[in-house]
């Protein structure tokens, strides 16, 4: 493989890592609080608010039901407003983040739902504030499930990022499509696929390792 192609592979790898890392980070940063809000506003919980809970649920479901490739194009004005441009790697981060947020919110809600109600009662009986319950009990106990879900999110984002080429985002998936599919360069195609496979494996292994570190329910 020529040096030029190798360069192309490395720069595309960096583009993918950049898009996935930033959108994953932002997705977690915004999605986890949204998931906590979704959990706590459910009727019977500490911040119960039927309408807010319903509204959040509807918005999240709506966002999640839009195919990513459509989301990518549909929010172009919004992307331009946020990052000043609607094409390029940084521009791709906006729709990727927007795709990640509801995903993370649902994952967070699900992980929190798994925490036994008795633990919350025990904390209430100790005189814990609602925020202490969220931080020290709910999030702490949901951590293995949360890490598991965030791993899933990163892998999904690696998949989504392949579509970023549609708005000039670059990355490995784009490279594979342009060289491998459009120019019949099978060595390029195989290289990108192998790198993507390795990347997904690494993320999954890291996630599994972290889950094992936090999960003390099995020994």
């Amino acid at each position: 493989m020529s040096a030029a192609k190798l360069d192309l592979l490395t720069s595309s790898l960096w583009e993918t890592l950049y898009m996935v890392a930033v959108s994953g980070g932002l997705g977690a940063l915004l999605g986890i609080p949204l998931g906590i809000l979704l959990y706590t506003t459910k009727p019977g919980r500490m911040l119960q608010n039927h309408w807010l809970h319903r509204l959040l649920g509807i918005v999240i479901n709506a966002t999640r039901s839009v195919p990513f490739i459509i989301l990518l194009v549909a929010i172009i004005p919004f992307t331009r407003w946020i990052v000043g441009t609607s094409i390029g790697t940084t521009a791709a981060i906006v729709p990727l983040t927007l795709g990640a947020i509801p995903f993370v919110a649902r994952i967070t809600e699900g992980a929190l739902n798994e925490v036994p109600g008795g633990l919350i009662e025990a904390a209430q009986a100790m005189g814990a504030t609602p925020w202490q319950i969220v931080r020290k009990v709910l999030l702490a106990e949901a951590m293995p499930g949360l890490i598991h879900g965030l791993t899933l999110m990163l892998i999904t984002l690696i998949g989504y990022s392949a579509m970023a080429g549609a708005i000039g985002g670059g990355g490995l998936g784009d490279l594979g499509i342009r060289y491998g599919y459009q120019r019949f360069d099978s060595s390029m195609m195989i290289s990108t696929v192998v790198i993507l496979i390795v990347l997904v494996q690494l993320v999954q292994s890291l996630g599994d390792w972290l889950v094992r570190r936090y999960d003390h329910t099995r020994h």
Binding site: L119, E121, A122, A140, T217
Partner: peptide, 14 residues
């Protein structure tokens, strides 16, 4: 006011 429960209610991650 301390309280203990039938199913202990301990935090599994602690």
């Amino acid at each position: 006011i301390g309280m203990i429960f039938q199913h202990f209610n301990l935090l599994s991650t602690r």
